[in-house]
Design a protein around this nucleic acid. Sequence first.
RNA 1: GCGGAUAUGGUGAAGUGGUUAUCAUCUGAGGUUUCCAACCUUAUGUCGUGGGUUCGACUCCCGCUAUCCGCACCA
Length: 557
Amino acid sequence: MADDARLERLQGMLRQRGVLLPAFDLYGGAKGLYDFGPVGGRLRSKINQAWLNHWTSLGNVVEISSPTVTPYEVLEASGHVGEFSDFMTQCGECDEASRADTLLESHHPNPDSLNRGDLQALLDDVSPKCPACGAVSWSQIETQNLMFSTTIGAGSSGRPGFMRPETAQGMFTMFPALYRHFREQLPFGAIQVGKGYRNEISPRQGMIRLREFNMAEMEYFIDPSSQETHDFSKWDSTAMELHDGEGEVHNLSLTQAISIGLIRHQTVGYFMGKTYDFLLELGIDSQKVRFRQHAPDEMAHYASDCWDVELHGSYGWIECVGIAHRGCYDLEAHEKASGRTLRARREFLEPKIVEIDGWTIDGGVAGPAFRGDAGQVKELVELLDLETEFPVDVVLNDGRALSVESQHVKRVQKTVKETGEWFIPHVVEPAFGIDRILWHVLDHAYDESEKGGEPYRMLKLSSLVAPIDVVILPLFEKNGMDEIASELHKRCCMIPNLVSMYDASGSIGKRYARADEIGVPLCITVDHQSLEDNTVTMRTRDDGSQVRISIDELPFL
RNA sequence: GCGGAUAUGGUGAAGUGGUUAUCAUCUGAGGUUUCCAACCUUAUGUCGUGGGUUCGACUCCCGCUAUCCGCACCA
């Protein structure tokens, strides 16, 4: 690629300036793990904060935080244990580990779909040779999961668990508390930023694929039967680059894309717009943003429609955000697995009057008569026609026929008024890979030019995310200029959410250059005139312009 | 996981089977009325890791780890 050299210069600069560094470098490094250094740490937290602010501004969204350590059952219910697992077996001769389903590919149409027991049985039956050494000596099949597994608690009392592969499950399992918090009114959303973990086979491309990564997700719960109306007018003059599931490219406004059914759901479209705004706020180049719809066979196990937001940078087009319509998949799965109700109530406009007229059992008689079968008899009796004459034979699931006599049953006639119903909310989930976004913020902000024949590097970071807000520079460290400067620096340090740096080393031009490399938007220089009238010069990074201003009028004080 | 390439101060590079390993830049101290990487003096800091061959290994060989590029898998 043409900008490989640029990528290397950028990575070198980020390492040198303490933005991004390989983690545990002291011990040779660790694949897929990165440090955010003294400059990068705040960059990350400012992006996180901007993200939180962006979504809480919707008004019906709350921030939560759930543990990264997650019990086995939760991720089993969500489908991750199954979907993220491979079954492994090890050769007793050469220790080579193989995927059990791969070994059996020629003996079963889809071994990937087998459960562990069936797979073990098939392996024992087929006894394939080890592809490495030819021996036939396989260990018991073990699950090899892409999730980091751990034990919660000590010894035999510990229960199995995982480091979460996504933050989403914490929001789903918190649904009852969220529903109560919002006074049982949909729609509402829950957001959290935090770490996710995936034990990647092969982490690559720097920040793009990590084993521990920062993610930010919102679960937005909606009533599928009442579509929220969103205002798209803001984006009407913006043609978004939309790639549909067939690979066709459409340049349309969001309103147009929704009206022709390309974007299937209003809320998905609205979040696409909000995501677009967010990325541009961070300083992402609007020319390097595109949306791509997942093809049906590409969709994750939980999604019914999904749009990726891809950003273009040194690694090509990279998926950085996924906006998925997860339907009721997750809440339904957790309802089934936990036995708890995860539903919302929808009131009918008009109460429904339901006339019930039919048969049911007379518990006092039928109970003792049918004992364990009474429950099933009740279900069968309630299906009987009004005209039924007793006694009548009913057939149980196991094939036995029982005779139901008139004394066992009674006629039910009643009027039930139903004012509403319970349903499982649907979920629209925008999921952000913070590290990937952060990388592209840096990539897009990185500017190479020349100054006096020398290469000149700069991070043109938006002040929303710039890790250092201001640098205070005494032109000379004498005659009292150093005192004014350090006093100003101390004053800045006292201001919450303002990070100031003091730099008195080297020529003034060199100090400006250093500040430019870590993307400081403003440099304040204390010079001779400051001694006389308490003014300083304020220099703007992007155009190098300077204005003289009284210290007390500095915009950030 | 497979195949290929690579690993030298913070960064970027050069180099050698032989004893104090080189250069630039960066960083620190001092000097210099220094507003866009000036200059002078000076200092700190390197052969990824483990084993082998050898009188001697940063150099040659092997393993490991990491990085980059394909493939596979995936987000």
